[in-house]
């Protein structure tokens, strides 16, 4: 009996495989994830600090940061609204085709980015199905930053939908029933009662969509036009430097991208951790 109490308390390991699973995990993470990143720093160490800053602040590179960050921000904001709408409709309403719509949400994750890239480029080019209609109206999407934002929004929409959806599902019916019975209108009730529960998940999903957009490559390069200073994304700048065998230049720019995306990932993880703890604290 006393032994039973002993292992329930979790102070000892009853289950086997700690050493084996720890060995495999640490070996794999070290070899596959961490070791290659050291290669980047090895390459960077061949640059002086002045050379490093000269590369990462060169005009064309800075222009690519602007294009990438601007388009990713627009894509993330559009997805915040569109994703919230889709999550709401999928959780709250019953209608024919709902299951299909739900399945369709994962398409951008399942579809290879290069396929998405050539398809969007073909659709929105001047002679494409969509370009045909919108270009006479003066709306140019292909080969502009709008096209870049569109491709980013396409590849990252599931992040928002799939982060908000479960939170909305777990929201008890009493929450909005109480608001409605007290006579609030839909708009006020949504803003005052639903949004406070939803916005941590919405911020997380939008943040993930933004990080994904910053690094996206395959879906964008076909529709972007890739004009220096105008429609060149940072991932493409790295690719161009590599094709010129300028490994030092590629590494310097890559280090900026890597640092920003890892910092954002860490921030999102901390944000999410805090929010999850608060939620559980509230329940207990």
């Amino acid at each position: 009996m006393s032994q039973l109490a002993f292992w329930r308390s979790g102070s000892t390991r009853v289950l086997p495989g700690f050493g084996l699973s720890m060995g495999i995990s640490v070996l794999f993470i070290s070899l596959v994830l961490l070791l290659p990143i050291t290669g980047l720093f090895g390459q960077l160490s061949e640059l002086s600090l002045a050379e490093y800053f000269a590369i990462i602040t060169e005009g064309r590179v800075v222009a690519s940061y602007m294009v990438t960050i601007g388009a990713a921000a627009v894509a993330a904001l559009v997805n915040a609204v569109f994703g919230l709408l889709l999550a709401w409709v999928l959780v709250r309403y019953e209608f024919p085709g709902k299951r299909l719509l739900d399945a369709l949400m994962d398409l951008p994750f399942a579809l290879p980015t290069a396929v998405a890239g050539i398809t969007l480029a073909t659709l929105y080019a001047g002679n494409g199905w969509v370009g045909n209609i919108i270009e006479p109206m003066g709306l140019q999407v292909a080969y502009t930053w709008v096209g870049i934002a569109l491709a980013m929004a396409f590849t990252s929409i599931p992040f928002v939908v799939r982060t908000v959806q479960p939170v909305l599902e777990d929201l008890p019916a009493e929450v909005d029933e109480a608001a409605m019975s007290l006579g609030a209108t839909d708009g006020v009730a949504f803003r005052r009662v639903i949004m406070p529960h939803l916005w941590p998940a919405l911020v997380t999903g939008t943040g993930l969509a933004f990080v994904r957009s910053l690094g996206e490559f395959g879906a964008i390069i076909f529709i972007a036009g890739n004009m220096p200073y105008e429609t060149e994304i940072t991932a493409l700048m790295i690719f161009v430097k590599l094709q010129e065998y300028d490994y030092a230049g590629a590494s310097a720019i890559a280090s900026v991208v890597l640092f920003v995306s890892l910092a954002l990932l860490l921030a999102i993880n901390i944000w999410q951790g805090r929010f999850v703890r608060r939620l559980h604290g509230g329940k207990g």
Partner: peptide, 24 residues
């Protein structure tokens, strides 16, 4: 460990290719 496993989701695919090219 749980945070490290998310690295490939955050790293741009081009950067992922580059770090392997630099090392190997």
């Amino acid at each position: 460990l749980q945070t490290l496993i998310d690295i490939p989701f955050a790293v741009s695919p081009v950067v992922a290719g580059l770090i392997y090219l630099l090392l190997y």
